[in-house]
Design a protein around this nucleic acid. Structure first.
Lengths: 114, 114
DNA sequence: CCATTATTTCAATAATCGTTGAAATATGGA
DNA sequence: TCCATATTTCAACGATTATTGAAATAATGG
């Protein structure tokens, strides 16, 4: 991961509503959630939410897919792990510090196969 | 860690120069580095650097101490680890995902004991 | 005390950001 | 086809941000 990408990802997370959205997606796991249910859970206007989704997506922190009338957003765990790795990289010169472990979702999304 | 603190920390890291400074400090370990050597390493104006240090410090990501004419900045690993933990908290509902491990500097700063 | 080194403070400027409101688009059902 | 639902697009506004240049403060050595 490059500094530029890391800054983009960090900037995407450095905002109350977006951080809430991302954490909700992280906790939701690889199946993701509909834009509507996120809007409801966090009490956000749908257009505001679209703006934030875009930034998370541009930062590689989220993906979208359509399912009927709904858009389903999901966290991209790979980017999250890369970001954490980038931050802690070569900690204390690499001698005495263990790098952070990665978060690996076990199963791929299961319901409604596309 | 609260959402507000996490946003502050993420915002502190979401800027090219500050991210470079922080990573340099992370790699320098608990002994830290002088403001001057950081300015030289990253080719930044000293007043700009002060501005960025302040933000890192306010976010709990760095500490300062004076040593002669120099100010020595060091990363606060505890906050970094809390931030990582906050991001990955309850990942995938907590069932199938291992949370990230922490980075623990082995020794406290050694030279010039105060 | 004076000069030098190291760093901080302050004011000003340009650029970017988050939210809002109204209107547009896409999908599915009657 | 027409309507309701779900989400996105667009333009506008006030607020925050990073950098700059010049001046101030702190510590050391002579």
């Amino acid at each position: 991961m490059e500094t530029t990408d890391a800054v983009t990802a960090l900037a995407a997370l450095a905002q109350d509503n977006r951080l809430d959205v991302f954490r909700l997606l992280v906790q939701a796991g690889p199946d993701g959630m509909t834009a509507g249910s996120i809007a409801e859970a966090l009490d956000l206007a749908p257009n505001t939410l679209t703006f934030h989704f875009d930034r998370l997506r541009m930062a590689g922190l989220a993906t979208v897919r359509r399912e009927g009338r709904s858009m389903i957003y999901a966290a991209r765990f790979e980017t999250m792990n890369e970001l954490v790795g980038f931050l802690t990289e070569n900690c204390c010169g690499g001698t005495s510090c263990a790098p952070a472990a990665a978060c690996k979702p076990a199963r791929k999304r299961s319901k409604i196969p596309a």
